[in-house]
């Protein structure tokens, strides 16, 4: 049997390596199962992978679930400011009743999770360091994710929607003054060449995005028992490694920025609380208002210690 796995990142990315681990382990298990990986959007564009997975046109994807928040508004909770505090908290969230609810919704689209995983991110700016909401006031900013844009807008930033490929140029010429995205994206956009200050994910971080390995449920159920066992075993091993790497990514991005002579700022617990208060009035509120049963789902997520 051959399974096709699609994702948007280059072959050096940690998320590609997670996919590769699964493919290697499954092949080694000798259960007539081969996983063919299509990296760098070579099969489907980043934001256009969910529906093909749901219809079985591709078998597996590594995917930031919030990309599909327009179709399933509940998924917006997987990229919500301050909802996840750090990587260990993220790991507990993965095993919580909140995630069970998300998985129920996914099952309606015939999709299941193989590997849970969160990646963190931070702020970078061409001017002064950004640690508190008042620092973004008046800045032209781009954020990865709707909820973050809502929060930044509430802080007085002007939101510029633009393609990720234009961010480098835009920061160079000053069209864009601040960016909020994942640790690994900063380095792949080579933003260290343009920014003055970087606020990475540290002991507390605001930006966490759920980016699991997902699979078409019917395809999984169609596998033999031996194949299922091999796949699940490989997935479990990959999940542990993914968590470990997710922590390492933050530190690695700091090294890249330091080497380029960029100032590194740190967010304190007090700063974090200021952002969280703002998020509660903006993005949390907008989520609860627009999603039926949104409050209950949010409470489930907040209940995770």
């Amino acid at each position: 049997t051959e399974l096709r796995l699609s994702h948007q990142w280059s072959t050096g990315d940690v998320r590609h390596k997670v996919a590769e681990m699964i493919a290697t382990d499954v092949a080694a298990a000798n259960v007539d199962l081969e996983i063919k990986i299509f990296p760098s959007e070579s099969l489907l564009k980043a934001r256009e992978q969910y529906n093909p997975l749901s219809r079985g046109q591709v078998d597996m994807i590594v995917y930031p679930l919030s990309y599909s928040g327009g179709q399933r508004p509940e998924y917006n909770l997987t990229l919500m400011p301050g909802l996840v505090k750090n990587h260990d908290h993220a790991a507990r969230l993965n095993e919580s009743p909140f995630m069970e609810e998300i998985e129920k919704i996914m099952a309606e689209d015939d999709i299941m999770i193989l590997v849970h995983g969160y990646l963190a991110g931070g702020f970078a700016s061409v001017g002064d360091c950004i640690t508190r909401p008042e620092h973004v006031n008046g800045l032209s900013t781009r954020a990865a994710g709707k909820s973050f844009e809502e929060m930044l807008a509430a802080a007085g930033a002007s939101i510029s929607s633009m393609a990720s490929s234009e961010v480098y140029n835009a920061m160079q010429t000053g069209v864009l003054q601040a960016v909020n995205t994942s640790s690994s994206s900063f380095a792949s956009f080579r933003l260290q060449e343009q920014v003055k200050c970087y606020t990475p994910a540290g002991d507390v971080a605001l930006w966490f995005m759920y980016q699991p390995v997902m699979m078409n449920k019917s395809t999984f159920e169609g596998l033999s028992d031996a194949q299922k066992t091999a796949l699940l075993a490989a997935a479990e091993k990959a999940e542990a490694w993914y968590l470990e790497q997710a922590k390492a990514e933050d530190a690695a991005s700091v090294e890249v920025f330091k080497a380029a002579g960029v100032t590194i700022a740190e967010m304190t617990q007090d700063d974090f609380n200021a952002w969280l208060d703002l998020a509660k009035q903006s993005s949390y509120k907008s989520f609860v208002d627009s999603v039926p049963n949104g409050q209950a789902l949010l409470d489930l997520a907040l209940a995770v210690e």
């Binding site: 489907l44 564009k45 934001r47 256009e48 529906n51 093909p52 219809r55 079985g56 046109q57 633009m162 393609a163 490929s165 234009e166």
Partner: peptide, 19 residues
């Protein structure tokens, strides 16, 4: 057939670019 079904989405996706 499963891939034919994807043609309009891929067409749309290819043009879905600001650049």
């Amino acid at each position: 057939m499963r891939s034919l079904e994807l043609m309009p989405e891929i067409f749309f996706g290819k043009l879905n670019s600001f650049a």
